[in-house]
Design a protein around this nucleic acid. Sequence first.
DNA 1: AAATATACCTGACTGC
DNA 2: TGCAGTCAGGTATATT
Length: 270
Amino acid sequence: MPELPEVETTRRGLSPHVVGRRVADVLVRERRLRWPVPDDLAGVLRGREILEIGRRGKYLLFRFAGGALIVHLGMSGSLRLAAAGEAVRRHDHVDILLDQGPLLRYHDPRRFGAMLWTPEPASHSLFAALGPEPLGEEFSPDYLWTASRGRRTAVKPFLMNAAIVVGVGNIYASEALFLAGVHPARETASLEREECMRLVAAIRQVLSQAIEMGGTTLRDFVNGHGQPGYFQQALHAYGRSGQSCMRCGTAIETLRLGQRASYFCPVCQG
DNA sequence: AAATATACCTGACTGC
DNA sequence: TGCAGTCAGGTATATT
């Protein structure tokens, strides 16, 4: 599923191929994403030069003079380079044709993603309430400790709350809690400073390593070149219910928190 | 104010 | 073989 590492992998893969190029046209085959794709998107983008691809949390920002194209991959989305004339597959919802070379093809079976235009990305409402970037300086043990005071919820949904820290979804929350040795159902307010330190370090480590390995591909994700990631080979907890813990050998257990499956080792995360 | 539930959507899988 | 039901999950929005 596209969490921060998958979005960053896409950004890095696409940037060298599209920055500096102009949009020739936009072809929308299916506009029913999370929100409707703007019906004048082709008119807005045509002729504009892509200056940069940025990222905020799990949002990609294609920056142009005078605005930005916001792209979210949802749960099953991917954005990749395709050769002109390459066969269109089911769920290839949008093509962004460039002035030369391959085109950008947006594919999203579950259509939980989004493609929006904004003239003012800095003040867009989608970004207004987002917490700090997990790989940035602001996300520190002190920050997490302060943010966790008075919170009665379980720590796993707390870490998945984008207002606390962006980019951490179900897979990496499970992995970070395993690495930090913290039980996913632990009450957030009871976290000690030492545990906040371990959690910040674990989140940074698991996200960084996943980016290096090109993200996690469970089913749908492919990078900007259409290739899967391979961090799924490095997962310690996620999806390993009943299998032995890689640290102590105990069977990995699962429980549901906030309607989401959570995987943990009952001994290492006791 | 924070916590929880709901809606959106398709494909893979399970059980009858 | 088919069909109904369940689950997966990011995040905005509604409800408690």
